[in-house]
Amino acid sequence: MTDQIASITPVATDLNTPCSPTWCPGCGNFAILSAFKKAATQEGWNNTNTSMVAGIGCHGHIVNYVKLTSVEGLHGRAIPVGTGIKMANHELNVFVFTGDGDCMGEGGNHFIHACRRNHDITIVLHNNNIYGLTTGQTSPTSPHNFKTKSTPDGNPDYPLLPVPLAIASGATFVAREYAGNVKELTELLIRANSHKGISILEVVLPCVSFNKEFGAEFFKENTYRLPEDYDVTDKVAAFAKALEWGSHQVPLGVFYEEAKPSYESEIPQLQHNILLENTYMDRDVTGLLRKQG
């Protein structure tokens, strides 16, 4: 599977930028970038209909490599920026790219609250179980006893699993894919975006430089696809499935999907127009001022 990522060749599209990716050769982020560009090209995501936000971490560099108007925000804070964009213009497809450190560590609070609010955005969580950009410290998703530069004797903490956390927090679309499965990831990105409400897409990926434990081999050995007859609407079963993680026990695919009105569809001010198009010039507040007297 390492080869699978290394063999990804950049597609020529209007979405290309003059910047060359600075990720390490073989980094799973290349695969995510490729899948996203494929999905965007296929779906016609462009600068008239789509915006992206990224946090800080290796994943965050993606904004430089996709020609879609974006914000590269602060560490852990990509999600509230994304929800702000969506509330201002809910006709945009909004993609929030974040990482395991970015949104399970620094921005955990935003993650759980975004899940319960059901804004119609897609959160792509790049999970490589390590801090890569800061050259290899333990992450909130690193396993117990995991040896890193910050845990030379093994990680004393236990890992957080994003998928059950998302389901427990109320997310209405929760899925996991392995970065190397570019075709499946492309399809999932499209499906996540078309879901009305919050979509959490965890993408597990190898960090070739700092995480020797969860390399391509690990994911090749241990992932399996949720069966065809799996019921994505059964929340309790989804939760049980989501807790699986280990030897030959890393499920891929959609864990849970629920039809529920999105946040934006329930706000009266957003029913006729996007927020930006509501009248805001020359407002008269005289009546309200007089009420104070």
């Binding site: 920026v81 201002a88 927020l275």
Partner: peptide
Amino acid sequence: YGYVYKQPEDEISAINMAIGASFAGARS
């Protein structure tokens, strides 16, 4: 008046939401 007030989970979220909305064109 057709604006949106949102109660966020904390002040960090408040300012980042407002930045997102402003980036998208809203007076925030």
